[in-house]
């Protein structure tokens, strides 16, 4: 699906795969995302072949809207999360913008639902033992379970699941955006950033049915908890290192406390 010849004018070209549209089945545009220092996205259109894997697995047809026409995105729709290469190369801010663009290009509500169901299908299921009350995301009309941990590098790792397919689709999008991100990036995302991805739900604000908001809020809260926990753990280590310092002259890593200090700053 990559077409590097189209990117000669871009400093960091990225390609997003596309599916055929109902109105223009022969024309299969690509979106090229230019990652500039300001995270600005540039879009251009290039004919391409459809992705047979996506189309045969899950034929999804989309129509255009006045909004997308104004943006010059007529008949465009991209399965952005299918592009594995984007995962490593886009920041959280870029991913949010990509998803926003993708969902804005789907003018028909049913197409948004279909897209979410597709993304639900690629979300790895959570094991049953993790579906416990302690992992519940409160405030949703559906059941959502969320596991959060911070890896050894200080990045956040999420696993999430729901008993609702549409909600699972929401969660899949959030996972794509936030899984593996730095805590600061996760905390910088707002519910408003996700407004364009809503499926007929209130665009902004807290609601019992606003899954985007509640799951994001829960991810951010638990990220905060991880940060605090790590700080406490590191403080204890620091204290411990001070206590044991008289015995640490054998040259252990915590002997001078510098390792601890740098970790706290993560």
């Amino acid at each position: 699906m990559h077409s590097s010849s189209n990117f000669k004018h871009l400093s960091l070209p990225l390609t997003i795969s596309c599916v055929p549209t109902k109105s223009s089945p022969q024309f299969n545009p690509k979106i090229h995302l230019l990652k500039k220092p300001s995270s600005f996205l540039t879009i251009s259109l290039t004919p391409t072949k459809p992705n047979p894997q996506i189309c045969s697995k899950n034929p999804i047809f989309f129509s255009s809207s006045s909004r997308t026409k104004r943006l010059g995105l007529s008949s465009i729709s991209c399965l952005i999360m299918e592009e594995a290469s984007l995962d490593e190369r886009l920041s959280v801010v870029d991913k949010v913008k990509c998803l926003s663009l993708e969902f804005r290009s789907l003018s028909e509500p049913i197409d948004r639902v279909k897209r979410l169901l597709h993304y639900a299908s690629i979300l790895p299921p959570l094991c049953e033992s993790a579906k416990v009350q302690g992992n519940r995301v409160l405030g949703c009309t559906t059941q959502v379970w969320l596991e959060v941990r911070m890896d050894s590098r200080g990045s956040m790792k999420f696993t999430v699941d729901s008993d609702s397919e549409i909600t699972k689709g929401f969660c899949s999008c959030l996972m794509w955006v936030l899984d593996g991100a730095e805590p600061e990036e996760i905390l910088s995302v707002t519910a408003e950033d996700l407004a364009d991805m809503n499926v007929g739900l209130p665009k902004k604000g807290r609601s019992r049915v606003n899954t985007w908001h509640n799951v994001l809020f829960s991810m951010q809260n638990r990220t905060q908890d991880c940060i605090q926990e790590r700080k406490r753990a590191l403080s204890l280590d620091d204290l411990h290192s001070l206590v044991i310092r008289p015995h640490a002259h054998s040259g252990g890593p915590s002997g001078d406390g510098s390792y601890v200090e740098s970790e706290v700053g993560v």
């Binding site: 049913i110 948004r112 639902v113 009309t141 609702s164 397919e165 909600t167 499926v199 007929g200 049915v209």
Partner: peptide, 22 residues
Amino acid sequence: VHPTDIATFLDQQHGVAIRSGH
């Protein structure tokens, strides 16, 4: 089929407003 998925689809595709949840 989850009731919230039903309610969402009824609204999005058919303009039918029902409630889902507890």
